[in-house]
Write a protein that binds this DNA or RNA. Structure first.
Lengths: 166, 166
DNA sequence: CTTTAATTTGCAACAATGTAACATTGTTTC
DNA sequence: GAAACAATGTTACATTGTTGCAAATTAAAG
Protein backbone atom coordinates (compact mmCIF):
# COMPACT_ATOMS: atom_id res chain seq x y z
CA UNK A 1 0.00 0.00 0.00
CA UNK A 2 1.31 3.39 -0.99
CA UNK A 3 0.84 5.50 2.05
CA UNK A 4 0.46 9.21 2.06
CA UNK A 5 1.34 10.29 5.53
CA UNK A 6 2.96 7.48 7.45
CA UNK A 7 4.83 9.86 9.70
CA UNK A 8 1.82 11.10 11.63
CA UNK A 9 1.68 8.04 13.86
CA UNK A 10 5.42 7.63 14.27
CA UNK A 11 6.19 9.11 17.62
CA UNK A 12 9.14 11.48 17.48
CA UNK A 13 9.38 11.43 13.72
CA UNK A 14 11.36 14.16 11.98
CA UNK A 15 8.57 16.66 11.68
CA UNK A 16 10.85 19.36 10.33
CA UNK A 17 11.26 17.06 7.38
CA UNK A 18 7.49 16.61 7.05
CA UNK A 19 7.02 20.34 6.85
CA UNK A 20 9.93 21.00 4.51
CA UNK A 21 8.76 18.28 2.16
CA UNK A 22 5.18 19.54 2.20
CA UNK A 23 6.24 23.12 1.55
CA UNK A 24 8.51 22.07 -1.27
CA UNK A 25 5.75 20.03 -2.86
CA UNK A 26 3.32 22.92 -2.44
CA UNK A 27 5.71 25.42 -3.97
CA UNK A 28 6.40 23.19 -6.94
CA UNK A 29 2.74 22.37 -7.43
CA UNK A 30 1.67 26.01 -7.42
CA UNK A 31 4.41 26.96 -9.85
CA UNK A 32 3.33 24.21 -12.21
CA UNK A 33 -0.35 25.12 -11.92
CA UNK A 34 0.33 28.81 -12.37
CA UNK A 35 -1.31 29.76 -9.10
CA UNK A 36 0.16 32.00 -6.44
CA UNK A 37 1.34 30.65 -3.12
CA UNK A 38 1.53 34.11 -1.58
CA UNK A 39 3.30 34.84 1.71
CA UNK A 40 0.02 34.81 3.59
CA UNK A 41 -1.06 31.50 2.11
CA UNK A 42 2.34 30.06 2.90
CA UNK A 43 2.02 31.21 6.49
CA UNK A 44 -1.40 29.61 6.81
CA UNK A 45 -0.06 26.43 5.28
CA UNK A 46 2.80 26.44 7.75
CA UNK A 47 0.42 26.94 10.65
CA UNK A 48 -1.62 23.95 9.50
CA UNK A 49 1.55 21.90 9.24
CA UNK A 50 2.56 22.77 12.76
CA UNK A 51 1.39 19.32 13.78
CA UNK A 52 -0.60 16.38 12.48
CA UNK A 53 -3.56 17.49 14.53
CA UNK A 54 -6.08 19.39 12.43
CA UNK A 55 -6.29 23.09 13.15
CA UNK A 56 -9.42 25.22 13.18
CA UNK A 57 -9.64 28.51 11.35
CA UNK A 58 -9.66 30.53 14.54
CA UNK A 59 -6.72 28.58 15.90
CA UNK A 60 -4.88 29.57 12.74
CA UNK A 61 -5.71 33.19 13.43
CA UNK A 62 -4.25 32.79 16.90
CA UNK A 63 -1.18 30.99 15.65
CA UNK A 64 -0.42 33.76 13.17
CA UNK A 65 -1.13 36.39 15.79
CA UNK A 66 1.45 34.70 18.00
CA UNK A 67 3.94 35.33 15.20
CA UNK A 68 2.95 38.96 15.08
CA UNK A 69 0.63 38.72 12.09
CA UNK A 70 -2.82 40.09 12.77
CA UNK A 71 -4.98 38.04 10.43
CA UNK A 72 -8.75 38.03 10.67
CA UNK A 73 -11.13 35.15 9.93
CA UNK A 74 -12.18 36.08 6.39
CA UNK A 75 -8.56 36.20 5.34
CA UNK A 76 -7.83 32.83 6.87
CA UNK A 77 -10.91 31.26 5.32
CA UNK A 78 -9.93 32.60 1.93
CA UNK A 79 -6.43 31.27 2.26
CA UNK A 80 -7.79 27.91 3.35
CA UNK A 81 -10.16 27.87 0.44
CA UNK A 82 -7.24 28.41 -1.90
CA UNK A 83 -5.15 25.76 -0.20
CA UNK A 84 -7.95 23.23 -0.28
CA UNK A 85 -8.82 23.99 -3.89
CA UNK A 86 -5.23 23.19 -4.75
CA UNK A 87 -5.08 20.08 -2.63
CA UNK A 88 -2.58 21.49 -0.14
CA UNK A 89 -4.84 21.05 2.86
CA UNK A 90 -7.86 18.92 3.58
CA UNK A 91 -10.86 19.85 5.61
CA UNK A 92 -11.86 17.37 8.29
CA UNK A 93 -15.55 18.17 8.56
CA UNK A 94 -16.19 16.22 11.73
CA UNK A 95 -13.60 18.43 13.43
CA UNK A 96 -14.29 21.73 11.67
CA UNK A 97 -10.57 21.80 11.09
CA UNK A 98 -7.86 21.48 8.50
CA UNK A 99 -4.90 19.18 8.03
CA UNK A 100 -1.95 19.45 5.67
CA UNK A 101 -1.61 17.25 2.64
CA UNK A 102 1.72 16.46 1.09
CA UNK A 103 0.35 15.12 -2.16
CA UNK A 104 -0.96 18.24 -3.90
CA UNK A 105 -2.03 16.19 -6.89
CA UNK A 106 -5.19 14.12 -6.90
CA UNK A 107 -7.14 15.37 -3.93
CA UNK A 108 -10.52 14.02 -4.86
CA UNK A 109 -10.41 11.00 -2.63
CA UNK A 110 -8.93 10.27 0.74
CA UNK A 111 -9.03 8.15 3.84
CA UNK A 112 -8.36 9.70 7.21
CA UNK A 113 -7.44 7.82 10.35
CA UNK A 114 -8.46 10.01 13.25
CA UNK A 115 -7.44 9.34 16.81
CA UNK A 116 -10.39 10.08 19.05
CA UNK A 117 -8.12 10.70 22.02
CA UNK A 118 -5.41 13.03 20.79
CA UNK A 119 -6.90 14.11 17.48
CA UNK A 120 -3.98 13.00 15.35
CA UNK A 121 -4.85 12.44 11.73
CA UNK A 122 -3.05 10.36 9.16
CA UNK A 123 -4.08 10.28 5.56
CA UNK A 124 -4.15 7.14 3.49
CA UNK A 125 -4.88 6.97 -0.21
CA UNK A 126 -8.40 5.85 -0.98
CA UNK A 127 -7.21 3.24 -3.42
CA UNK A 128 -9.62 0.48 -4.34
CA UNK A 129 -12.27 1.86 -2.05
CA UNK A 130 -13.25 4.29 -4.74
CA UNK A 131 -13.95 1.51 -7.21
CA UNK A 132 -16.01 -0.40 -4.68
CA UNK A 133 -18.06 2.62 -3.75
CA UNK A 134 -18.50 3.63 -7.35
CA UNK A 135 -19.68 0.18 -8.30
CA UNK A 136 -22.16 -0.06 -5.43
CA UNK A 137 -23.44 3.44 -6.01
CA UNK A 138 -23.84 2.61 -9.67
CA UNK A 139 -26.65 0.22 -8.77
CA UNK A 140 -28.69 3.30 -7.96
CA UNK A 141 -27.39 5.27 -10.92
CA UNK A 142 -25.55 7.49 -8.50
CA UNK A 143 -22.42 8.98 -10.07
CA UNK A 144 -19.66 9.19 -7.49
CA UNK A 145 -17.20 12.02 -7.88
CA UNK A 146 -15.37 12.24 -4.60
CA UNK A 147 -14.89 9.77 -1.80
CA UNK A 148 -13.94 10.75 1.72
CA UNK A 149 -13.58 8.19 4.46
CA UNK A 150 -13.09 8.91 8.12
CA UNK A 151 -11.96 6.10 10.38
CA UNK A 152 -12.27 6.98 14.03
CA UNK A 153 -10.15 5.04 16.47
CA UNK A 154 -7.04 5.06 18.57
CA UNK A 155 -3.54 5.86 17.48
CA UNK A 156 -0.74 3.57 18.75
CA UNK A 157 0.36 6.00 21.46
CA UNK A 158 -3.08 6.57 22.89
CA UNK A 159 -3.92 2.89 22.73
CA UNK A 160 -0.79 2.16 24.74
CA UNK A 161 -1.48 4.90 27.25
CA UNK A 162 -5.04 4.01 28.06
CA UNK A 163 -5.36 0.35 27.23
CA UNK A 164 -8.42 -1.15 25.67
CA UNK A 165 -10.80 0.27 28.24
CA UNK A 166 -13.23 3.13 27.89
CA UNK B 1 -25.63 -5.95 -1.50
CA UNK B 2 -27.99 -5.33 1.38
CA UNK B 3 -28.99 -1.74 1.05
CA UNK B 4 -30.16 0.45 3.82
CA UNK B 5 -32.03 3.25 2.19
CA UNK B 6 -32.68 2.48 -1.44
CA UNK B 7 -35.73 4.68 -1.54
CA UNK B 8 -33.92 7.98 -1.29
CA UNK B 9 -32.96 8.01 -4.95
CA UNK B 10 -36.22 6.61 -6.28
CA UNK B 11 -38.10 9.60 -7.51
CA UNK B 12 -41.66 9.61 -6.29
CA UNK B 13 -41.20 6.72 -3.92
CA UNK B 14 -43.76 6.19 -1.19
CA UNK B 15 -42.23 8.45 1.38
CA UNK B 16 -45.11 8.04 3.79
CA UNK B 17 -44.05 4.44 3.95
CA UNK B 18 -40.41 5.44 4.57
CA UNK B 19 -41.46 7.51 7.52
CA UNK B 20 -43.90 5.02 8.94
CA UNK B 21 -41.37 2.25 8.71
CA UNK B 22 -38.68 4.37 10.33
CA UNK B 23 -40.93 5.46 13.16
CA UNK B 24 -42.05 1.91 13.77
CA UNK B 25 -38.48 0.70 13.87
CA UNK B 26 -37.54 3.54 16.19
CA UNK B 27 -40.40 2.84 18.54
CA UNK B 28 -39.60 -0.83 18.69
CA UNK B 29 -35.90 -0.22 19.13
CA UNK B 30 -36.41 2.20 22.00
CA UNK B 31 -38.82 -0.13 23.72
CA UNK B 32 -36.31 -2.96 23.48
CA UNK B 33 -33.46 -0.80 24.68
CA UNK B 34 -35.49 0.60 27.51
CA UNK B 35 -34.97 4.20 26.43
CA UNK B 36 -37.68 6.80 26.04
CA UNK B 37 -38.76 8.06 22.66
CA UNK B 38 -40.57 11.04 24.16
CA UNK B 39 -43.04 13.18 22.20
CA UNK B 40 -40.39 15.82 21.65
CA UNK B 41 -37.85 13.33 20.39
CA UNK B 42 -40.45 11.81 18.14
CA UNK B 43 -41.25 15.23 16.72
CA UNK B 44 -37.60 15.91 16.02
CA UNK B 45 -37.25 12.50 14.42
CA UNK B 46 -40.28 13.21 12.25
CA UNK B 47 -38.83 16.56 11.22
CA UNK B 48 -35.62 14.85 10.17
CA UNK B 49 -37.59 12.30 8.22
CA UNK B 50 -39.48 14.99 6.36
CA UNK B 51 -37.23 14.28 3.42
CA UNK B 52 -34.04 12.49 2.51
CA UNK B 53 -32.19 15.77 2.57
CA UNK B 54 -30.31 16.25 5.83
CA UNK B 55 -31.72 18.90 8.13
CA UNK B 56 -29.75 21.31 10.28
CA UNK B 57 -30.54 21.82 13.94
CA UNK B 58 -31.89 25.31 13.36
CA UNK B 59 -34.00 24.10 10.47
CA UNK B 60 -35.50 21.60 12.88
CA UNK B 61 -36.31 24.45 15.25
CA UNK B 62 -38.06 26.22 12.40
CA UNK B 63 -39.90 23.10 11.29
CA UNK B 64 -41.25 22.50 14.79
CA UNK B 65 -42.10 26.16 15.14
CA UNK B 66 -44.14 25.86 11.96
CA UNK B 67 -46.14 23.18 13.75
CA UNK B 68 -46.67 25.50 16.68
CA UNK B 69 -43.95 24.05 18.90
CA UNK B 70 -41.54 26.63 20.17
CA UNK B 71 -38.36 24.61 20.60
CA UNK B 72 -35.00 26.24 21.17
CA UNK B 73 -31.59 25.03 20.03
CA UNK B 74 -30.41 23.32 23.23
CA UNK B 75 -33.54 21.21 23.26
CA UNK B 76 -33.13 20.21 19.66
CA UNK B 77 -29.47 19.38 20.14
CA UNK B 78 -30.28 17.22 23.12
CA UNK B 79 -32.96 15.38 21.21
CA UNK B 80 -30.57 14.90 18.31
CA UNK B 81 -27.91 13.62 20.64
CA UNK B 82 -30.35 11.05 21.97
CA UNK B 83 -31.46 10.05 18.50
CA UNK B 84 -27.91 9.70 17.26
CA UNK B 85 -26.80 7.78 20.34
CA UNK B 86 -29.54 5.31 19.59
CA UNK B 87 -28.81 5.12 15.90
CA UNK B 88 -32.06 6.75 14.81
CA UNK B 89 -30.39 9.59 13.00
CA UNK B 90 -26.94 10.15 11.58
CA UNK B 91 -24.99 13.34 11.55
CA UNK B 92 -23.57 14.34 8.17
CA UNK B 93 -20.61 16.42 9.30
CA UNK B 94 -19.85 17.96 5.95
CA UNK B 95 -23.35 19.41 5.96
CA UNK B 96 -23.75 20.17 9.66
CA UNK B 97 -26.99 18.32 9.36
CA UNK B 98 -28.85 15.19 10.26
CA UNK B 99 -30.50 12.42 8.29
CA UNK B 100 -32.83 9.68 9.43
CA UNK B 101 -31.70 6.09 9.72
CA UNK B 102 -34.10 3.20 9.48
CA UNK B 103 -31.74 0.61 10.91
CA UNK B 104 -31.52 1.58 14.57
CA UNK B 105 -29.14 -1.30 15.22
CA UNK B 106 -25.45 -1.21 14.39
CA UNK B 107 -24.71 2.43 13.73
CA UNK B 108 -20.96 2.36 14.03
CA UNK B 109 -20.25 2.33 10.34
CA UNK B 110 -21.90 3.75 7.31
CA UNK B 111 -21.57 4.94 3.78
CA UNK B 112 -23.41 7.98 2.55
CA UNK B 113 -24.07 8.89 -1.04
CA UNK B 114 -24.57 12.63 -1.13
CA UNK B 115 -25.88 14.48 -4.14
CA UNK B 116 -23.97 17.71 -4.47
CA UNK B 117 -26.78 19.33 -6.40
CA UNK B 118 -29.92 18.63 -4.42
CA UNK B 119 -28.41 17.40 -1.17
CA UNK B 120 -30.18 14.06 -1.17
CA UNK B 121 -28.50 11.42 0.93
CA UNK B 122 -28.80 7.66 0.74
CA UNK B 123 -27.18 5.37 3.22
CA UNK B 124 -25.46 2.17 2.29
CA UNK B 125 -24.04 -0.35 4.72
CA UNK B 126 -20.30 -0.10 5.09
CA UNK B 127 -19.85 -3.81 4.53
CA UNK B 128 -16.39 -5.01 3.56
CA UNK B 129 -15.00 -1.50 3.58
CA UNK B 130 -14.58 -1.76 7.32
CA UNK B 131 -12.36 -4.81 7.03
CA UNK B 132 -10.24 -3.18 4.38
CA UNK B 133 -9.78 0.00 6.36
CA UNK B 134 -9.09 -1.92 9.55
CA UNK B 135 -6.46 -4.03 7.85
CA UNK B 136 -4.70 -1.07 6.26
CA UNK B 137 -4.84 0.95 9.45
CA UNK B 138 -3.46 -2.03 11.32
CA UNK B 139 -0.16 -1.56 9.48
CA UNK B 140 0.28 1.56 11.60
CA UNK B 141 -1.10 -0.06 14.75
CA UNK B 142 -4.10 2.17 14.46
CA UNK B 143 -7.21 0.58 15.98
CA UNK B 144 -10.27 1.47 13.92
CA UNK B 145 -13.54 1.74 15.80
CA UNK B 146 -15.91 3.54 13.47
CA UNK B 147 -15.88 4.05 9.75
CA UNK B 148 -17.81 6.76 7.98
CA UNK B 149 -17.62 7.23 4.26
CA UNK B 150 -19.04 10.11 2.27
CA UNK B 151 -19.35 9.78 -1.46
CA UNK B 152 -20.09 13.07 -3.13
CA UNK B 153 -21.64 12.97 -6.54
CA UNK B 154 -24.86 13.27 -8.52
CA UNK B 155 -28.11 11.50 -7.89
CA UNK B 156 -29.92 10.08 -10.94
CA UNK B 157 -32.39 12.97 -11.12
CA UNK B 158 -29.80 15.70 -10.97
CA UNK B 159 -27.54 13.90 -13.40
CA UNK B 160 -30.43 13.76 -15.85
CA UNK B 161 -31.36 17.39 -15.36
CA UNK B 162 -27.95 18.89 -15.84
CA UNK B 163 -26.03 16.41 -17.92
CA UNK B 164 -22.41 15.61 -17.39
CA UNK B 165 -21.24 19.21 -17.59
CA UNK B 166 -20.14 21.45 -14.76
C1' DC C 1 7.61 52.71 -17.84
C1' DT C 2 2.94 53.80 -17.02
C1' DT C 3 -1.78 52.91 -17.00
C1' DT C 4 -5.28 49.47 -16.59
C1' DA C 5 -7.28 45.40 -14.96
C1' DA C 6 -7.36 41.63 -11.97
C1' DT C 7 -6.22 39.43 -7.86
C1' DT C 8 -5.36 39.43 -3.11
C1' DT C 9 -5.70 41.20 1.49
C1' DG C 10 -7.72 44.22 5.34
C1' DC C 11 -11.57 45.27 7.84
C1' DA C 12 -16.14 45.87 10.02
C1' DA C 13 -20.23 44.05 10.74
C1' DC C 14 -22.98 40.23 10.88
C1' DA C 15 -25.11 35.42 10.36
C1' DA C 16 -25.18 30.69 11.60
C1' DT C 17 -24.11 27.03 14.58
C1' DG C 18 -23.31 25.01 18.99
C1' DT C 19 -22.91 25.00 24.31
C1' DA C 20 -23.07 26.02 29.52
C1' DA C 21 -25.56 26.73 33.42
C1' DC C 22 -29.39 26.63 35.88
C1' DA C 23 -34.56 26.51 36.53
C1' DT C 24 -38.60 23.87 35.81
C1' DT C 25 -41.35 20.06 34.80
C1' DG C 26 -42.25 15.31 34.46
C1' DT C 27 -41.38 10.34 35.56
C1' DT C 28 -39.96 6.42 38.24
C1' DT C 29 -38.96 4.06 42.66
C1' DC C 30 -39.58 3.06 47.14
C1' DG D 1 -46.49 10.90 48.63
C1' DA D 2 -41.39 11.88 48.96
C1' DA D 3 -36.98 11.29 47.08
C1' DA D 4 -34.25 10.50 43.14
C1' DC D 5 -33.73 10.75 38.53
C1' DA D 6 -34.65 12.10 33.68
C1' DA D 7 -36.21 15.37 30.38
C1' DT D 8 -37.33 19.94 28.88
C1' DG D 9 -37.38 25.22 29.08
C1' DT D 10 -34.77 29.40 29.09
C1' DT D 11 -31.13 32.73 29.17
C1' DA D 12 -26.96 33.91 27.97
C1' DC D 13 -22.97 33.06 25.67
C1' DA D 14 -19.06 30.81 22.76
C1' DT D 15 -17.58 29.29 18.48
C1' DT D 16 -17.55 29.11 13.61
C1' DG D 17 -18.31 30.98 9.12
C1' DT D 18 -19.90 34.85 5.74
C1' DT D 19 -20.98 39.34 3.22
C1' DG D 20 -19.66 43.44 1.32
C1' DC D 21 -16.69 46.86 0.38
C1' DA D 22 -12.20 49.37 0.68
C1' DA D 23 -7.23 49.30 0.21
C1' DA D 24 -3.20 47.32 -1.47
C1' DT D 25 -0.66 44.43 -4.26
C1' DT D 26 0.41 42.10 -8.48
C1' DA D 27 -0.06 40.90 -13.28
C1' DA D 28 -1.15 42.47 -18.02
C1' DA D 29 -1.58 45.86 -21.79
C1' DG D 30 -0.28 49.67 -24.15
Amino acid sequence: MNMQNPAAFERGHDHQRCVRQALDAATLHCRREGVRLTPLRRKVLLAVWDSHIPLGAYQICDALAAHGDRVLPPTVYRALEFLERNGLVHRIPSANAFIGCNQPGAHHHGRYLICRDCGLVAELPAGDLVDTVRRDAGHFDFAVERVRLEALGRCPDCAAKRGKDR
